[in-house]
Amino acid sequence: MMFIKIMIDSDASPVKDIVIDEAKKHGLKVVLVASYAHYSTKIHPAHVETIYVDSAKEAADYRIMQLLQKDDILITQDYGLASLALGKKAKVLHHKGFEYDNDNIA
């Protein structure tokens, strides 16, 4: 059985805490992907996993794409990453709340 997870491109995401709280209400796992440059000692609840990658350009994007599966939810403000994620049939949201799709990605 496959479980849907929420992935956050979290280096610059202002909605991490809101998403973590809402995901808990719905029994969803949250995966935060960030560079070591944004390392935090903050302790998150058990349903949250934090993955750190090196600070190389696009390192977080590459890791997200390795982990992202069909029907997962990705939150990002990166249009390039959003475009790739749509190709994997993920649901992709901007942190301002709108959903990326094949009609508005350009």
Rank of each mutant, 00 (worst) to 15 (best):
M1S: 14
F3P: 13
F3C: 06
I6F: 06
M7W: 05
M7F: 15
D9I: 12
D9N: 09
D9C: 05
S13P: 12
K16V: 15
K16L: 04
K16Y: 10
D17M: 03
D17C: 05
I18R: 07
V19A: 03
V19H: 01
V19P: 03
V19K: 00
V19D: 00
V19T: 13
D21R: 04
E22Y: 08
K24E: 12
K25H: 11
H26K: 08
H26T: 03
H26P: 02
L28G: 03
K29A: 08
K29R: 12
V30C: 01
V30L: 00
V30M: 00
V31S: 02
V31Y: 01
L32K: 00
V33C: 03
A34Y: 01
A34G: 10
Y36V: 14
Y36W: 14
Y36K: 07
Y39E: 06
T41H: 09
K42F: 09
I43Q: 12
H44F: 15
E49G: 08
E49P: 05
E49L: 03
T50W: 00
I51T: 07
Y52K: 03
V53W: 02
D54N: 15
S55W: 05
A56E: 14
A56W: 13
A59S: 14
A59T: 14
A59F: 05
A60L: 03
A60S: 12
D61A: 13
D61I: 15
Y62A: 12
R63G: 13
I64V: 09
Q66S: 10
L67A: 07
L68I: 14
Q69S: 15
K70N: 06
K70T: 15
K70D: 06
I75G: 10
T76H: 03
Q77L: 05
D78C: 10
Y79E: 02
L84T: 10
L84E: 11
G87N: 13
A90S: 13
K91P: 06
V92C: 05
V92N: 02
H94W: 08
H94A: 13
K96V: 15
K96Q: 14
K96T: 15
F98E: 07
E99R: 04
Y100K: 00
N102Y: 11
N102V: 11
D103H: 09
D103L: 05
N104K: 03
A106P: 10
